[in-house]
């Protein structure tokens, strides 16, 4: 992997990260309200074979965002779409902050500047 200036690298990464987030937000807001509401493969099999007799309701079934809806938003499409947007934002925030903290911790441990570039996967 060639070494590029950090400015150029971060600019290029910003563009693709913004593009990816825009796609994620659009899918969550516009597409997710219109998808199949059938049970997924596991739910279907569990019900068919009666292996779900021990199932308990989720502790947060009455939560504000339970089941990808926002309590108080009556329009179902808007409710799910906004819940999706909140989820995308929350996931991005948690992951980015988490990875950044990890990165800082790792750096401190090995001394700044001695950070190798990642190698190929195989």
């Amino acid at each position: 992997m060639p070494l590029v200036s950090s400015r150029k690298a971060s600019g290029g990464t910003t563009a693709i990260v913004v593009a990816g987030l825009a796609v994620a937000l659009a899918l969550a807001f516009f597409v997710s309200p219109n998808v199949s509401s059938s049970p997924d493969g596991l739910e279907m099999v569990a019900a068919q074979l009666s292996i779900d007799t021990g199932e308990r309701p989720h502790a947060m079934d009455d939560g504000t965002l339970a089941d990808y809806t926002i309590r108080g938003v009556d329009d179902p499409a808007l409710s799910k779409g906004l819940a999706g947007v909140i989820g995308v934002a929350a996931t991005f925030s948690v992951a980015t902050v988490g990875f950044a903290l990890l990165r800082r911790t790792a750096r401190r441990r090995v001394d700044v500047g001695a950070v190798p570039i990642p190698g190929p996967p195989s």
Binding site: L21, F92, T96
Partner: peptide
């Protein structure tokens, strides 16, 4: 940020 975007 790339990993954050992938998760989102």
């Amino acid at each position: 940020p790339l990993a954050g975007m992938a998760a989102a």
